[in-house]
Structures are given as C-alpha cells and as structure tokens.
C-alpha cells in the first residue's frame, strides 16, 4: 500500500508541486502524466526516499520499493550476468534467469554491458527490477529508447507483476496498454508562487 497525502515537493529549492494525494494498492498501477518540467521525476524521487518532501506525507515501506531512474546504473566493463547478479545479491536474491528470460537477454548474458545498444541497456536496467524481489516498482520514463517489441516485453512484465499482487508507479508519455491502470495528471497540482512580500524563513 502506497499512500501519498497532500505532498509538497521542491526542485532546486523551488516548490514545483503541492497538494498531491493518491493511493496505490496491491495489483494496481498508477501512471503519472504531465508536461516536461512539471516535477514527475522529483515526485518519484521523493516517494523513493531520495529527497525530502517540503510538506505532506508519503506512507510507504522503504524496504519494499525498487526504483528505476533515467540512468540504469550499469557498469560497462561487467557482463550482463555480472551486472544482474550484483544487484540480485544486494537485494538478497540469487536467481537471475527469469529476469534474463523476460527481457530476452539470454543471448547477451556474457557480453560486456558496454557493448550493448541503448535499448539493450535499458532492457538490462528494467530486468534489474525483477531481481530485487520488491513489491512496489517506481519507474521514471521506463520506455526511453525501447523499440515496440521491447515495450511489449515491458508491459507484459508489468502486467504479470501486477497480477502477482505487485504495485507500480510510472511516469511515462506513451500508452502501455495497461487496462486498469489509473492515471494521474499532475498539471492541476503545480505549485502556486507565494506573494513576493512573504519574506519568511524559507525565502520563497
């Protein structure tokens, strides 16, 4: 259960979103939408616990979430298997073969990650989620540089995760074909600037 109530967040010291509230329960996915710069990444990073919120509350178990950001955290001198095995060990898991299978990486398993194409790297980054054993997935623009085939792999992966009682929070612009995914448009939550004379503790 992920519950966000009346959240206010800032990027670079400037408030970008306020009054954001939503819930995601087991088996549900929530797709966050909004124009560039509205604060999708900041929102996801705040929920992942990477940065503090200005106000409001995020009710989430930090030991039950996995985060995928813009960068995949792939070491180019390690092979695909080594990269995945490392993350599996960090999260206390051992079996990486389902992850390789889901994203069709078996053929590339021994290749150094530095020799992968951008889309293949992204697939490796997404496969990492499957070795975390975590229930809540937080994904920031997961489909960047994926082709239609790989996007299909990804949405199949999300669907089976949800079917298994998992939760997902995604920021994306494309339609993933997730039937019962809720959508949240962030535009109405854009932070209103305070009056210029409110020269208070926070400077803003």
């Amino acid at each position: 259960m992920l519950k966000v109530s009346d959240l206010q967040i800032a990027r670079g010291g400037v408030p970008v979103l306020q009054g954001v509230s939503f819930e995601v329960s087991s088996g549900q996915a929530l797709v966050v939408r909004g124009p560039n710069g509205i604060g999708k990444t900041t929102l996801l990073r705040t929920i992942a616990g990477l940065q503090p919120a200005l106000d409001g509350a995020v009710d989430v178990d930090p030991d039950d979430l996995a985060y995928v950001g813009h960068a995949d955290g792939i070491k180019s001198t390690l092979s695909v298997t080594e990269n995945l095995t490392f993350w599996a060990q960090v999260f206390g898991q051992s079996d990486i073969s389902p992850a390789l299978q889901t994203y069709q990486l078996e053929g590339l398993a021994d290749r150094p990650a530095g020799l992968l194409s951008a889309g293949q790297k992204r697939r490796l980054g997404l496969a990492r989620l499957l070795v975390t054993g975590r229930n809540l997935w937080i994904l920031d623009e997961p489909t960047v540089s994926l082709d239609t085939n790989a996007v299909e792999m990804f949405s199949a992966c999300i669907r089976s995760h949800l079917a298994g009682g998992g939760k997902a929070l995604l920021a994306t612009h494309i339609d993933l074909g997730l039937e019962d995914a809720k959508e949240l448009d962030l535009s109405p939550f854009k932070a209103k600037p305070m009056s210029v004379n409110a020269f208070d503790e926070a400077f803003l």
Binding site: G12, V14, P193, V196, F199, F203, L204
Partner: peptide, 14 residues
Amino acid sequence: ARRVRVLSTRQRME
C-alpha cells in the same frame, strides 16, 4: 543576495 537569487529563479520559471 539569497533573496535576489530566489526572486530571479522564480522570474525565470514564470
């Protein structure tokens, strides 16, 4: 100085 930085940041954002 900080006040000025904050105000100019905000101006750029609007």
